[in-house]
Design a protein around this nucleic acid. Structure first.
Lengths: 343, 343
DNA sequence: TTTCAACACTATTACGTTTTCGTAAACCTA
DNA sequence: TAGGTTTACGAAAACGTAATAGTGTTGAAA
């Protein structure tokens, strides 16, 4: 139970000053070889490692990135974290993760807590509640304090900062187009409530694809799921009444649930009903049938977001008051992963 | 772009000492009401918040928990994080997450980095490589420095510390017993390589269940998957040759792959082949047929682990050199979630 | 008048680093 | 030997906070 040794202790033990110890360990030329080697040997023996907190305080940077996401038990978000962690790690950064649980208050609390010196910058995706309220003061505040923020996936145009997104609209367009190309005429959209930014965009893409192909746009073919649990019933109803031949779901869960509902009614996927899901996750790959998806590489998003943040951090460190602030929005390309649920 | 205000700045601005500002903000009685209110008003106006890093340095605790896990894009691990974060959050702790990617070196590097003052304690699950090597010096070292460690799921008996596990052996026993109870006689085990601690234990439970029921133990019915990609072929072969009537898989992926392999050969699940998986994740719930699983509540594990760690942290803070070190191993109960893949 | 307490505030220290500046001693040069 | 330059080290400040230990003034009790 030997506590970590500090410069002070080493200095005392070797009867030199703290400065001498510090300089010796950083191989400063100011220190004579004899002393330097002695100190280094001693430090090595006691396994001296500089205290990160003290360094953070002194350097006024923590080499830590704060991540705030709605939830973590979620394939997409965990792949994003994976991507962030990878780049962060390669650049000597750690990541500290906070979950908003899709709650505005928790998002605000977490941001305030982290903004008080704990981290150098944020990577975040907005909570549902925040998007609903449209209140982004906590983010503005952080940015005004000079702390860089990178938003991904669930972003808002009301905040000026770096962003990483996919082109939800054209990805949705492409998916629906592919259904149309396969002869599907009555395509339902299973989506979330409107205030989630990505949900809105995907709906736009869906609509545009229909109209561009001269297909009728029918409000009744769009169902907005609030609660996953009731999802199956609602979808079942849709299948029964409307004689639809394809489903475009904004996430895997809605897609797999649609398939289950179809199966229960004796419909075959893909023969009677084609299904495409947004987000290429684990469910699509292992469901029966496997599901055609719009791949939305979370890992790549994480990589890019981390890269953008770190670049800004290292840059702003160089010449402090540049204030260029030429914020970028990077768009990650998507593509259709064709599987058994379409033919 | 106003940087965060500090005590010093407030003091200078109001022409009082730093101590006065500090005490005013903490409502000390030593400070006269007039001054106190003036300071508080000023601080509020400039949105003063104490700097976490400075507090950490002063208090010699960071209120941060370090988590080291093999991977994050993994249902079980992300639920554990969710559980940890929840309890941590309730107790004013943050979590900083590092991924070992199942690599020994990365695990060591991450631990060393975090151990240098960044966190107050660890919660971790061993990487495969670490378990294979059997080298735990990095963990011993951290513990010797007085930093508490809680291990979960993938643990080792070679390290004395708090642990949270499930009773893998008896959970496996129970699962296999349930298959036997349903009349299955030729039960295959699809597992991982041996050095993963939990894999070994689950195999033991499987074996014991067979023997206790007077069923023959057949080495050939146990297949150890090294690489998920080759899994389907191997399982297919097993089904062909051995005329088995049930599969007990140590994770969801192996289970769903077994089902796919069976389907391809025209076998029906559960009629011709019953399947049980370890770990109740998202795949089991949404696969077709849904899969009977051994629920292994990651969230609960996370909750317990965080609780144990925080309790130890707060305790050791009270009377520093108690050295009781009565380490506990908590066992999280499991239960069988019966679904369509067994009957 | 002395003493002592209460009041209202400040100085200092400590946490662990790094770095700037300073300085004594030794050496070199003319 | 006076003056200058190296060499080798130390003191102190700085990062931001909080707690302990003062300090000086006032007023009241002895």
């Amino acid at each position: 139970m030997k506590r970590k040794v500090t410069l002070k202790q080493i200095a005392k033990e070797l009867d030199v000053s703290i400065s001498t110890v510090s300089k010796s360990l950083r191989n400063s030329l100011e220190i004579g070889e004899e002393t330097r080697l002695k100190v280094q040997a001693f430090a090595k023996f006691y396994n001296y490692k500089p205290n990160n907190i003290a360094l953070s305080l002194k350097n006024r940077k923590t080499k830590t990135i704060g991540i705030i996401i709605p939830e973590i038990v979620h394939y997409f978000f965990s792949t994003v974290i994976n991507g962030i962690e990878q780049v962060a790690n390669e650049n000597g950064y750690s990541v500290i993760i906070c979950l908003s649980d899709d709650s505005f208050d928790k998002e605000v609390r977490n941001m305030e807590m982290l903004a008080n010196g704990s981290i150098d910058g944020f990577i975040m995706s907005l909570s549902k509640e925040t998007q609903l309220k449209g209140d982004f003061h906590h983010i503005t505040e952080v940015i005004n304090q000079g702390m860089p923020v990178v938003m991904f996936d669930r972003v808002t145009s009301e905040i000026l900062c770096d962003k990483v997104i996919i082109d939800d609209k054209s990805a949705a367009y492409e998916a629906v187009q592919s259904l149309i190309d396969k002869g599907r005429k009555k395509i339902a959209l299973v989506t979330t409530v409107d205030y989630v930014s990505v949900g809105k965009l995907r709906t736009d893409g869906y609509t545009k694809a229909l109209l561009d192909n001269g297909l009728p746009f029918n409000e009744n073919l769009i169902i907005k799921i609030e609660d996953v649990d009731t999802c199956e019933v609602i979808i079942g109803k849709l299948l029964e009444d409307k004689a639809i031949d394809a489903v475009f779901a904004v996430n895997e869960l809605f897609a797999v649930t649609s398939i289950k509902a179809a199966n229960k009614m004796g419909l075959n996927v893909p023969e009677d009903l084609a299904v495409i899901a947004f987000t290429d996750g684990i469910i699509s790959k292992y469901s029966t049938p496997t599901i055609t998806t719009v791949s939305q590489s979370g890992k790549k998003m994480g990589n890019r977001a981390a890269k953008m943040l770190i670049e800004r951090l290292e840059l702003e460190h160089k010449d402090d008051e540049e204030e260029d602030e030429n914020y970028k929005t990077e768009v990650i390309e998507t593509h259709l992963v064709e599987r058994e649920s379409t033919n």
